[in-house]
Nucleic acid binder design. Structure first.
Lengths: 123, 123
DNA sequence: GCAGATTTCTACAGCTCGTAGAAACTTCAG
DNA sequence: CTGAAGTTTCTACGAGCTGTAGAAATCTGC
């Protein structure tokens, strides 16, 4: 239950980047703006996608207000972490994977990682 | 170009676990054994899946031998790392994600990570 | 109560995946 | 060389997911 389609992803990106909840119309407008005039989606299209994202648990909807307002149910980072864990899930020897993974990241990120590991975050 | 279907995944698992290249018949038999008698796939089914996996670049095929022999083109770990990077790919602030990710792994793995980071692997 | 905005329902085309038969091809025995 | 048995390729279909949206139902303010 992870991979998103292109449009679903675009919608999520907008929701993640927005501090405020957005309506379907807001999203339609933003999508049009971001993609140039080439993309003039029908509002029903956006609503369908939102309904699907809601069903997938990725967005929440305020039904109280009349134009329903949608928000991402978790941050982009948390979502990405979920993806990472999912990808790691079906790996038996996690450590071997992590080793290789670490080997491939930039020195900056390695430094950041070390800082995180050494930080007293595990209270 | 990442997610595999159930059967595709099963086939990859067998190929990854095998030191030797396998034929479609080998795979059909193993699949039947692993899944109990419930699964008696036609060989053509296995061949179709193998062809698709080959097209995806996940398996390689020896056409020289008569029953073609198939091998995974990269190790399970390398493949998983690719998935990880793919998941991270569409995240802007990789460090924030990594921080959260690290926060969620087990102490053992954290220790392993530290060891990896500190090791003189970057030759 | 109605017009306009909004949401829900229904639908379809394109793609992937599991599944496999039919047809073509290869190879070995006789 | 010829045919049978094994192997591979071609073609296909149904199910599920995604982009897309019209039609119909619903709501809301005037």
């Amino acid at each position: 239950m992870a991979s998103l389609g292109d449009l679903e992803r675009s919608v999520m990106d907008l929701l993640w980047d927005s501090a405020e909840p957005l309506t379907a119309n807001d999203l339609r407008d933003e999508l049009a703006a971001n993609a140039g005039a080439s993309k003039e989606l029908a509002v029903t299209t956006v609503l369908t996608v939102l309904a699907r994202l809601e069903k997938k648990g990725l967005v929440e909807r305020e039904r109280s207000t009349r134009p329903h307002r949608y928000t991402a149910s978790s941050s982009r980072e948390d979502h990405t972490v979920e993806l990472l864990n999912e990808a790691l899930g079906n790996a038996q020897d996690r450590e071997a994977v992590l080793a290789r993974f670490i080997g491939g990241i930039s020195p900056d990120e390695a430094a950041a990682l070390r800082a995180i590991l050494d930080s007293p975050k595990s209270a």
